[in-house]
Every structure is written in structure tokens, then in C-alpha cells.
Design a protein around this nucleic acid. Structure first.
Ligand SMILES: [Mn+2]
Ligand SMILES: [Mn+2]
Ligand SMILES: [Mn+2]
Ligand SMILES: [Mn+2]
Lengths: 155, 155
DNA sequence: TTTCTAACATAGCCCTGGCTATTCTTCCAT
DNA sequence: ATGGAAGAATAGCCAGGGCTATGTTAGAAA
């Protein structure tokens, strides 16, 4: 065999170096672990603002999961200090919870507005934003925000 | 109590209707389940193209996980018909696997290019794209593609 | 005040996707 | 030809995030 039997010889071709590659995947895995927490506190904040209280059944309905699934998750959120639970009463956000909810809500809104600004239908924007939001870094969020502002200015 | 004790009375305020909300979350959960498969086949395709073979150690190194984690996942991919495994030999993509890899790679590339096109640094674009790609619908992907093409045309 | 129902709690199951520790195989160097 | 090391397989653990089935409780309606 020649020393050149590998498709891209020594130049390492298209692939980025392993540690850079690894870092991206690690970050993505980390984002995935915080996704649910963000969606829950955001939804709880919305429900409270909208109807005065956040109940398990409503959370379950809007998330499209079963009530015990919500119950288990709420225990985790309580253990992690995001919410306060009173048995057979509603859910209340702690200060930490409110803060995370506010951040999540703002980021979510910017992402959705951005998608609309580049011409995507509101239905699709809503769906895609629900997943994309959790993987948008501060730098990207700033770029999205700028873009939305500019687009509005030119209309 | 007055009939108006709830913050937003009858207009249902800011929240979208429950079933629409639910649909977004369901889609996002579905996308999450396919994320890993997409990243694996894409990475395997890249490794084969780059070095002639895809080995567990290299996959593990680039994903930032342990080798048995990769081994277990590869069994699933084989069971699902994306790859072919020969004990103590490398990984080979089936036709289905190649097809998914190609789709994933293209989508990934468009997302990353798009982020760069709106002014995000390549480092951040790489990281964010790794997560965002899995939540981009065909409609959004088309919009991203158009935007990239236009941006290149005007430079 | 009592009853009944909707909401909540709890138990117990499953799958996914991580990990460590250990045991094969292969294959290269000696 | 053989030994060792690198790579792959296997076993067994854990947490997260789903589910169903079932028991409990609070509060409204009667
Ligand atoms: Mn959100
Ligand atoms: Mn979301
Ligand atoms: Mn990818
Ligand atoms: Mn990815």
C-alpha cells in the first residue's frame, strides 16, 4: 500500500479537530439537560400570569404528557429550588425560578420573532422555536435580536 | 369575588391554545429522540470519508463519551438498520444510513452557514448549529438556505 | 354537613443514554 | 511465532423522562 491509501492523507481534510468537535457535542448534551427545566418554569410563569395559578393538569395538558410525569418533574424542580409546592395547592416560582422563567421567556420570544422575521410562518416558527431556543448561545441571541430590530425598522 | 378575579378574564390573553402548545412540545420531544441517531450517522460518514474507516474509539473521542456508550448506541443503530457491524472491525453505513447521513450533513451545513451569514463567529456557529440543526423544519431550512444564497450573492 | 368528583400523590414499570470495571480479540512488534 | 497493547465487547450500575394503575385529598354541590 502507498502511504496515501487514506482518502485525505495528512491534511486531515474536512473534519474539525477532535477536541473542538467534542466541545460542541458536550455543550449540546448540556443544553439538552436544561431544556425541560426551562420549558417548565416558563410555562408555569405563563400560567400564573394568565390564570392566576399553575396547576398540574394544565401543565400536563399543554406539554402533552401525563399528570404523574409532571408530578415527578415538579419534585425535581422543587428539589432544585425553582419552585415551591404545597400539597394539593398550586405551584409557585421561587426568585430563582422567576429569574430563569424570565430569561427563558425572553430568549424564546426573540427566537420566535427572529424566525418570523426571516419569513417563516407563525405556525412553523412556534414549533421550531420551542426546540431551537435551548441551543441558542448569548452571541447568537444578540444577533437574532439585532436582526429583528432592523427588520422592524425597515418596514 | 368578582367574575374578573383572573388577570386576563375571558380573552385568554397571551397563551396560545392548549392543543397548539402541546403540538410544539410533542414535536420537540420527537426531534430529541432522533438527534443522537442523526449525529452518529453523520459522524460515521465523515470519519469514513476522512480516514477510510469509522472506529468506536474515534467516535467516542469526537462525541466526548466513553467507548461502551458508543458500543451500546451502535447496537441500536444496527438494530434499526442504519449501520452494519462486524465484530472487532469497523462500522459501515447501510443505504438507509448513508441517506440519513447525507440529509443530516446537508442540513447541518446549511444551519452553520446561515449562522455565519448573520454575523456569528465560526466557533459559536459550530457549537450552536450542533444543537439547533435537529429542530429545524424543512420550511425553516429552506428559509436559511435562501438567506445564505442571497448573502453570498451580495458580497 | 355530607358526598362526589376532579386533582394530586404514589408505586412500579419501561427505555434511553450515560458511566466503570472487566474480559475478550486482533494485530503489530519483537 | 508470540506477547502485549489497543480496541471492542460485556456486565452492571445510575439518573432522567416517559407511561399506567391506583390510592388520597380538597373543595364544590347538593
Ligand atoms: Mn420556551
Ligand atoms: Mn422549549
Ligand atoms: Mn450534525
Ligand atoms: Mn447535532
Amino acid at each position: 500500500m502507498s502511504p496515501d491509501d487514506k482518502p485525505h492523507s495528512d491534511s486531515e481534510s474536512l473534519l474539525v479537530d477532535p477536541s473542538t468537535h467534542m466541545e460542541s457535542f458536550r455543550r449540546t448534551r448540556h443544553n439538552r439537560r436544561t431544556e425541560l427545566v426551562e420549558d417548565y418554569v416558563e410555562l408555569i410563569a405563563d400560567l400564573i400570569e394568565d390564570g392566576g395559578e399553575a396547576r398540574q393538569v394544565d401543565i400536563a395538558l399543554r406539554l402533552g404528557v401525563a399528570q404523574p410525569t409532571v408530578a415527578k418533574m415538579l419534585k425535581r424542580l422543587a428539589a432544585d429550588g425553582y419552585i415551591q409546592q404545597r400539597r394539593y395547592r398550586g405551584i409557585f416560582l421561587t426568585d430563582i425560578g422567576k429569574q430563569l422563567a424570565e430569561q427563558s421567556r425572553e430568549r424564546h420570544h426573540i427566537v420566535e420573532s427572529f424566525l418570523c422575521a426571516i419569513g417563516i410562518s407563525i405556525e412553523t416558527a412556534r414549533i421550531d422555536a420551542e426546540g431551537i431556543e435551548h441551543h441558542v448561545s448569548p452571541e447568537t441571541l444578540e444577533a437574532f435580536k439585532r436582526f429583528v430590530t432592523q427588520t422592524i425598522a425597515f418596514s
